[in-house]
């Protein structure tokens, strides 16, 4: 029974991958109705359009132009009714998670930025009326939440502390899920798995020693609380010297094939110069010989 499942499973998966362009993309119910925590103002939509052109346009094209890349399955033009039927929560989910050829952007864009993209895409829907997440739901916690991040040099760990202030009282937040990410060239890299704060509101991650940082080993780190329903969008960005110092060497520093002529490889300079000198040396020798032919003739002429 078990082995037959092993045989069937790849086919099922395969079919799923093949058909995913045509099949409905089911979004978990609890995510469907999720709403943006802020209003899609003009400046928000402006931000969203920047994120869109950087991250989405290469496949989905300019909304409304139908100039999306001809991939299989076809990327959907966000200005179409088919796309706009999605709820805000569904768009947010699909952008975050991705599927098949559509990459997951949850490590590339922050929750704030994905919502900005949603806001931008809604400018292509004249009938759209935004529903903002009610203030009461913004944070079930019911107060302000603050994250702090520090580098514990002696243990070489990154410590994140979650503190909440409600009813005028500041307390550590216990059992909050924290994700730590570090900025890389394309999107963010999540470090370790998400961890839960202890009763003191503290969570510790191993510092990523092997990651190359800037010239002093600085890495741009972001910690955020995963549970948005509970705590709203809460994150802290810090630059810590936890990575490896990386001093980029200019590719044009040393002699190389691709460098300017003054920095050409020595062997090439030698080979070229020698070849030219030898060939033209012989040519000039021959010209000299021709002159000798002339000299002999001239001498014979003067004798006769």
């Amino acid at each position: 029974m078990r082995w037959s499942l092993h045989l069937i499973l790849p086919f099922l998966t395969f079919n799923f991958l093949q058909l995913n362009g045509q099949e409905n993309w089911e979004v978990p119910e609890e995510r469907q109705g999720r709403l943006s925590p802020f209003e899609f103002s003009d400046s928000i939509q402006q931000q969203g359009s920047i994120h869109y052109s950087v991250n989405c346009a290469s496949c989905h094209g300019t909304p409304g132009q139908g100039n999306f890349e001809r991939l299989d399955p076809l990327p959907v033009d966000p200005a179409t009714a088919e796309f706009q039927e999605n709820t805000d929560g569904e768009i947010f989910y699909k952008v975050s998670e991705g599927r098949g050829l559509m990459p997951s952007f949850k490590n590339v864009l922050s929750a704030q930025e994905i919502w900005e993209v949603v806001g931008y895409l809604r400018t292509y829907n004249a009938d759209y009326v935004q529903e903002v997440r009610p203030t009461a739901e913004l944070s079930a916690y019911g107060g302000t939440v603050e994250l702090l991040m520090a580098h514990l040099t002696d243990q070489n760990k990154i410590q994140v502390v979650a503190k909440g202030t409600r009813h005028g009282e500041t307390q550590p937040i216990e059992a909050a899920e924290v994700a730590l990410r570090v900025k890389r060239y394309f999107g963010d890299l999540q470090l370790d798995e998400t961890k839960f704060t202890n009763p003191q509101g503290i969570v510790e991650f191993d510092a990523p020693q092997e990651l190359p940082g800037d010239e002093s080993g600085h890495l741009e780190l972001t910690a955020h609380l995963v549970n948005q329903e509970m705590f709203g969008i809460t994150q802290v960005d810090t630059t810590l010297a936890v990575g490896q110092a990386f001093v980029p060497v200019s590719l044009t520093r040393d002699r190389a094939m691709w460098n300017v002529v003054q920095k050409a490889p020595i062997w090439l300079l030698l080979a070229y110069t020698l070849s030219v000198l030898i060939a033209w040396g012989i040519i000039f020798y021959i010209l000299f010989q021709i002159k000798k032919i002339f000299d002999i003739g001239a001498e014979l002429e003067s004798k006769s």
């Binding site: 002339f294 002999i296 014979l300």
Partner: peptide
């Protein structure tokens, strides 16, 4: 003709 005289040396 460079003063060619069909001399063997030439």
């Amino acid at each position: 003709s460079l003063k060619w005289t069909h001399h063997p040396e030439q």
